[in-house]
């Protein structure tokens, strides 16, 4: 089968989302979810053009440093403070097709665990060279790469002594609004992961494991940056009967 066929998404509807892959809406140990979780069953219907289309973001939208959180905020000759890392991976749909042109927007705390935000209350210091946001668009093979600092863990007002594991927030746009997703990437080996009430909103251990980026030693830049690999899977469209026939011809 030619590559082009492989990479062109079919025209059928989006496969239904499997709840087991996702967190539960109500998880009392994550206190804010108690009054913010819908209780009625959602309405299901097959995806329509409203969900199968979505905003298209071109590479021309990006500035040269948008995917480099080490340098996109501070003065030109300075970089963010902390362990330098590369985060890279591939965005695919649930049938394994690469998602080209996906916009990934990321945000994170600095290396000390502090966000640049008016509501942030942690005593760790701000880094004058770190804004904490970045974005990138996947290439034709669905690949992306970011440079940043490894964020620090931080305490948060939930239980009396809850700490978030180090994490990077990801917002993802695929080709259709049905694929819209916000998630968080964690780091291999962090002992805070299994203790975190937000992580524990997900019941399935394998689903949690997929959010943990392993160290990717071969991708490391010697004397510069460690690398972590985070692959993302979005929902996919099924083939229509018509398309199947066409391929069979």
């Amino acid at each position: 089968m030619p590559d082009k066929t492989n990479n062109t998404p079919p025209k059928g509807g989006y496969a239904a989302r499997l709840p087991a892959n996702h967190p539960v809406a109500l998880y009392p140990p994550y206190r804010t979810s108690v009054k913010r979780s819908p209780q009625a069953a959602p309405l299901s219907f097959p995806s329509t053009i409203s969900e199968e289309t979505g905003p298209v973001f071109g590479h021309s939208m990006l500035g040269p440093l948008d995917g480099d959180l080490l340098r996109n905020f501070g003065p030109q000759d300075q970089t963010a403070i902390g362990p330098r890392i590369i985060v890279h991976g591939r965005v695919q749909d649930q049938f394994g097709r690469p998602v080209a042109g996906a916009l990934l927007e990321v945000w994170q705390a600095n290396a000390g665990g502090r966000y640049r935000h008016v509501k942030e209350g942690y005593i760790a210091p701000l880094d004058p060279n770190f804004g904490g946001c970045g974005r990138v668009i996947t290439d034709a093979d669905g690949r992306y790469e970011l440079r940043t600092v490894k964020p620090g863990p931080y305490p948060w007002p939930n239980g009396p002594n809850d700490w978030r594991p180090a994490h990077i927030h990801f917002s993802v746009f695929g080709a259709g609004f049905a694929q819209r997703l916000i998630t968080q990437m964690y780091f291999e080996g962090d002992p805070l992961i299994p203790l975190c009430p937000i992580v524990r909103t997900i019941n399935d251990a394998a689903a949690v494991a997929r959010l943990i980026a392993p160290l990717d030693k071969p991708h490391t830049l010697p004397m510069d940056a460690l690398a972590y690999r985070f692959d993302i899977t979005l929902r996919g469209r099924r083939q229509t009967l018509f398309e199947n026939r066409m391929e069979g011809l």
Partner: peptide, 13 residues
């Protein structure tokens, strides 16, 4: 391939 799990956007989205 299972869809990547969602996580809350949090207070600093």
């Amino acid at each position: 391939f299972p869809e990547t799990a969602s996580q809350t956007a949090g207070p600093y989205v």
